[in-house]
Amino acid sequence: MSVYICSVCGYDYDEAAGDPRHGIAPGTRWEDLPEDWVCPVCGADKSMFERQGGVEAVPAPAPAAAPAAQAPANNDGDAKLMAVMASNLARGSIKQYREEMSGLFTRLADFFESRSVPEGDWQSARGLVDADIAGAYPAAFEAARAAKDRGALRALTWGEKVSKIQTNLMGRWLKEGDAAFEGSDLFVCDACGFIFVGNEAPEICPVCKVPRFKFNRVGRGA
Protein backbone atom coordinates (compact mmCIF):
# COMPACT_ATOMS: atom_id res chain seq x y z
CA MET A 1 0.00 0.00 0.00
CA SER A 2 1.39 3.36 -0.97
CA VAL A 3 0.71 6.96 -0.16
CA TYR A 4 0.32 9.62 -2.84
CA ILE A 5 0.78 13.28 -2.03
CA CYS A 6 -0.96 16.21 -3.65
CA SER A 7 1.71 18.56 -5.00
CA VAL A 8 -0.66 21.51 -4.68
CA CYS A 9 -1.87 21.27 -1.08
CA GLY A 10 0.01 18.40 0.55
CA TYR A 11 -3.04 16.15 1.14
CA ASP A 12 -1.99 12.52 1.23
CA TYR A 13 -4.03 9.78 -0.34
CA ASP A 14 -3.31 6.61 1.59
CA GLU A 15 -4.35 3.54 -0.38
CA ALA A 16 -5.00 1.69 2.88
CA ALA A 17 -7.44 4.38 4.06
CA GLY A 18 -9.04 5.30 0.73
CA ASP A 19 -11.31 8.35 0.64
CA PRO A 20 -14.55 7.02 2.14
CA ARG A 21 -16.20 10.43 2.30
CA HIS A 22 -16.09 10.47 -1.48
CA GLY A 23 -17.04 6.86 -1.98
CA ILE A 24 -13.52 5.46 -2.24
CA ALA A 25 -13.24 2.31 -0.13
CA PRO A 26 -10.21 1.60 2.05
CA GLY A 27 -7.67 -0.44 0.13
CA THR A 28 -8.36 1.22 -3.20
CA ARG A 29 -5.17 1.27 -5.22
CA TRP A 30 -4.08 4.50 -6.85
CA GLU A 31 -4.49 2.95 -10.31
CA ASP A 32 -8.05 2.00 -9.45
CA LEU A 33 -9.12 5.48 -8.40
CA PRO A 34 -11.50 6.87 -11.03
CA GLU A 35 -9.79 9.26 -13.41
CA ASP A 36 -12.17 12.05 -12.40
CA TRP A 37 -11.33 11.70 -8.72
CA VAL A 38 -9.87 14.97 -7.42
CA CYS A 39 -8.02 15.96 -4.29
CA PRO A 40 -10.67 16.33 -1.57
CA VAL A 41 -8.89 19.38 -0.18
CA CYS A 42 -7.91 21.48 -3.19
CA GLY A 43 -9.51 19.86 -6.25
CA ALA A 44 -6.26 19.00 -8.05
CA ASP A 45 -6.59 15.97 -10.29
CA LYS A 46 -4.64 12.72 -10.08
CA SER A 47 -1.88 13.94 -12.37
CA MET A 48 -0.78 16.40 -9.68
CA PHE A 49 -0.02 13.68 -7.12
CA GLU A 50 3.37 12.15 -6.47
CA ARG A 51 4.01 8.82 -4.79
CA GLN A 52 5.57 9.17 -1.38
CA GLY A 53 9.11 7.90 -1.41
CA GLY A 54 8.94 7.77 -5.17
CA VAL A 55 11.50 9.33 -7.39
CA GLU A 56 12.31 12.70 -5.99
CA ALA A 57 10.83 15.34 -8.24
CA VAL A 58 14.14 16.67 -9.43
CA PRO A 59 13.60 20.02 -11.08
CA ALA A 60 13.90 19.06 -14.70
CA PRO A 61 17.25 20.37 -15.91
CA ALA A 62 15.47 22.95 -17.97
CA PRO A 63 17.61 23.95 -20.90
CA ALA A 64 18.92 26.96 -19.05
CA ALA A 65 20.34 28.59 -22.13
CA ALA A 66 17.22 28.08 -24.19
CA PRO A 67 15.28 31.26 -24.63
CA ALA A 68 12.06 31.42 -22.68
CA ALA A 69 9.40 29.45 -24.49
CA GLN A 70 8.58 31.48 -27.53
CA ALA A 71 7.62 34.93 -26.48
CA PRO A 72 3.85 34.67 -26.70
CA ALA A 73 2.18 36.86 -29.27
CA ASN A 74 1.73 40.39 -28.12
CA ASN A 75 -0.31 42.67 -30.31
CA ASP A 76 -1.21 45.17 -27.68
CA GLY A 77 1.93 47.24 -27.39
CA ASP A 78 2.44 46.03 -23.83
CA ALA A 79 -0.92 47.42 -22.75
CA LYS A 80 -1.59 44.29 -20.70
CA LEU A 81 1.79 44.60 -19.02
CA MET A 82 1.03 48.23 -18.15
CA ALA A 83 -2.39 47.23 -16.82
CA VAL A 84 -0.86 44.62 -14.51
CA MET A 85 1.88 47.04 -13.42
CA ALA A 86 -0.77 49.55 -12.42
CA SER A 87 -3.18 47.09 -10.81
CA ASN A 88 -0.33 45.64 -8.75
CA LEU A 89 0.65 49.11 -7.52
CA ALA A 90 -3.01 49.82 -6.71
CA ARG A 91 -2.95 46.68 -4.58
CA GLY A 92 0.31 47.74 -2.95
CA SER A 93 -1.17 51.15 -2.17
CA ILE A 94 -4.28 49.79 -0.51
CA LYS A 95 -2.18 47.51 1.69
CA GLN A 96 -0.62 50.71 3.02
CA TYR A 97 -4.09 52.23 3.47
CA ARG A 98 -3.33 54.75 0.72
CA GLU A 99 -6.82 54.90 -0.78
CA GLU A 100 -6.29 57.90 -3.03
CA MET A 101 -3.09 56.47 -4.51
CA SER A 102 -4.77 53.13 -5.03
CA GLY A 103 -7.68 54.71 -6.87
CA LEU A 104 -5.33 56.60 -9.18
CA PHE A 105 -3.37 53.46 -10.05
CA THR A 106 -6.67 51.70 -10.70
CA ARG A 107 -7.63 54.39 -13.21
CA LEU A 108 -4.32 53.85 -15.00
CA ALA A 109 -4.92 50.10 -14.93
CA ASP A 110 -8.41 50.52 -16.40
CA PHE A 111 -7.06 52.68 -19.21
CA PHE A 112 -4.39 50.19 -20.22
CA GLU A 113 -6.79 47.30 -19.78
CA SER A 114 -9.09 48.95 -22.32
CA ARG A 115 -6.21 49.04 -24.80
CA SER A 116 -5.21 45.43 -24.35
CA VAL A 117 -6.11 43.15 -27.22
CA PRO A 118 -7.81 39.83 -26.32
CA GLU A 119 -6.13 36.96 -28.10
CA GLY A 120 -6.12 33.20 -27.77
CA ASP A 121 -8.36 30.54 -26.29
CA TRP A 122 -8.31 27.95 -23.52
CA GLN A 123 -6.27 25.58 -25.66
CA SER A 124 -3.52 28.13 -26.22
CA ALA A 125 -3.64 29.32 -22.62
CA ARG A 126 -3.41 25.77 -21.33
CA GLY A 127 -0.46 25.08 -23.61
CA LEU A 128 1.34 28.06 -22.12
CA VAL A 129 0.53 27.06 -18.52
CA ASP A 130 1.76 23.53 -19.15
CA ALA A 131 4.95 24.87 -20.72
CA ASP A 132 5.45 27.08 -17.66
CA ILE A 133 5.07 24.11 -15.33
CA ALA A 134 7.41 21.98 -17.43
CA GLY A 135 10.08 24.58 -18.13
CA ALA A 136 9.75 28.16 -16.99
CA TYR A 137 8.92 27.41 -13.34
CA PRO A 138 11.77 24.89 -12.86
CA ALA A 139 14.18 27.34 -14.54
CA ALA A 140 12.98 30.19 -12.34
CA PHE A 141 13.22 28.05 -9.19
CA GLU A 142 16.79 27.29 -10.14
CA ALA A 143 17.65 30.95 -10.66
CA ALA A 144 15.97 32.00 -7.41
CA ARG A 145 17.68 29.24 -5.43
CA ALA A 146 21.04 30.22 -6.85
CA ALA A 147 20.38 33.80 -5.78
CA LYS A 148 19.02 32.66 -2.39
CA ASP A 149 16.04 34.83 -3.18
CA ARG A 150 13.41 33.48 -0.83
CA GLY A 151 10.89 36.13 -1.81
CA ALA A 152 11.03 34.98 -5.41
CA LEU A 153 10.89 31.35 -4.24
CA ARG A 154 7.72 32.19 -2.30
CA ALA A 155 6.06 33.69 -5.38
CA LEU A 156 7.19 30.75 -7.53
CA THR A 157 5.92 28.20 -5.02
CA TRP A 158 2.47 29.77 -4.97
CA GLY A 159 2.43 30.50 -8.70
CA GLU A 160 3.41 26.97 -9.70
CA LYS A 161 0.68 25.46 -7.53
CA VAL A 162 -1.92 27.89 -8.83
CA SER A 163 -0.79 27.09 -12.38
CA LYS A 164 -1.40 23.40 -11.72
CA ILE A 165 -4.96 24.16 -10.66
CA GLN A 166 -5.40 26.44 -13.68
CA THR A 167 -4.37 23.72 -16.13
CA ASN A 168 -6.60 21.17 -14.35
CA LEU A 169 -9.60 23.46 -14.52
CA MET A 170 -8.98 24.41 -18.15
CA GLY A 171 -8.73 20.69 -18.92
CA ARG A 172 -12.08 20.07 -17.27
CA TRP A 173 -13.62 23.01 -19.08
CA LEU A 174 -12.31 21.89 -22.46
CA LYS A 175 -13.70 18.42 -21.85
CA GLU A 176 -17.06 19.21 -20.29
CA GLY A 177 -17.87 22.81 -21.18
CA ASP A 178 -20.84 24.27 -19.35
CA ALA A 179 -21.28 21.09 -17.33
CA ALA A 180 -17.77 21.30 -15.86
CA PHE A 181 -18.63 23.25 -12.73
CA GLU A 182 -22.40 22.82 -12.75
CA GLY A 183 -23.94 23.46 -9.38
CA SER A 184 -20.77 24.96 -7.95
CA ASP A 185 -19.38 28.40 -7.51
CA LEU A 186 -15.80 29.32 -8.21
CA PHE A 187 -13.81 31.01 -5.45
CA VAL A 188 -10.56 32.84 -6.19
CA CYS A 189 -8.06 33.44 -3.40
CA ASP A 190 -7.33 37.14 -3.33
CA ALA A 191 -3.79 36.56 -2.11
CA CYS A 192 -2.39 33.85 -4.41
CA GLY A 193 -4.99 33.29 -7.15
CA PHE A 194 -5.87 29.71 -6.21
CA ILE A 195 -9.28 28.72 -7.63
CA PHE A 196 -11.60 26.54 -5.57
CA VAL A 197 -14.66 24.78 -7.00
CA GLY A 198 -17.45 24.24 -4.50
CA ASN A 199 -20.35 25.72 -2.65
CA GLU A 200 -18.31 27.49 -0.02
CA ALA A 201 -14.73 28.71 -0.02
CA PRO A 202 -12.35 26.52 1.99
CA GLU A 203 -11.62 27.50 5.58
CA ILE A 204 -8.08 28.37 4.60
CA CYS A 205 -6.49 28.61 1.18
CA PRO A 206 -4.82 25.25 0.41
CA VAL A 207 -1.95 27.08 -1.28
CA CYS A 208 -1.19 30.22 0.72
CA LYS A 209 -3.23 29.58 3.90
CA VAL A 210 -5.17 32.85 4.12
CA PRO A 211 -8.56 32.53 5.82
CA ARG A 212 -11.86 32.06 4.04
CA PHE A 213 -12.86 35.70 3.89
CA LYS A 214 -9.96 36.39 1.53
CA PHE A 215 -11.70 34.43 -1.23
CA ASN A 216 -13.76 36.17 -3.89
CA ARG A 217 -16.78 34.28 -5.12
CA VAL A 218 -17.35 34.20 -8.88
CA GLY A 219 -20.91 33.12 -9.41
CA ARG A 220 -22.80 32.07 -12.47
CA GLY A 221 -25.04 34.55 -14.20
CA ALA A 222 -25.42 38.30 -13.97
Partner: peptide
Protein backbone atom coordinates in the same frame (compact mmCIF):
# COMPACT_ATOMS: atom_id res chain seq x y z
CA UNK B 1 19.09 35.91 -13.53
CA UNK B 2 16.09 35.88 -11.24
CA UNK B 3 14.60 38.93 -12.94
CA UNK B 4 14.91 37.31 -16.36
CA UNK B 5 13.31 34.07 -15.19
CA UNK B 6 10.43 35.93 -13.55
CA UNK B 7 9.96 38.04 -16.66
CA UNK B 8 9.65 34.95 -18.86
CA UNK B 9 6.90 33.67 -16.59
CA UNK B 10 5.23 37.07 -16.50
CA UNK B 11 5.10 37.28 -20.30
CA UNK B 12 3.46 33.90 -20.36
CA UNK B 13 0.89 34.90 -17.72
CA UNK B 14 0.08 38.06 -19.69
CA UNK B 15 -0.58 36.00 -22.82
CA UNK B 16 -2.74 33.63 -20.77
CA UNK B 17 -4.77 36.56 -19.47
CA UNK B 18 -5.28 37.85 -23.03
CA UNK B 19 -6.66 34.43 -23.86
CA UNK B 20 -8.99 34.61 -20.86
CA UNK B 21 -10.09 38.06 -22.09
CA UNK B 22 -10.90 36.59 -25.49
Amino acid sequence: GTLQALRALLDSKLAQERAADA
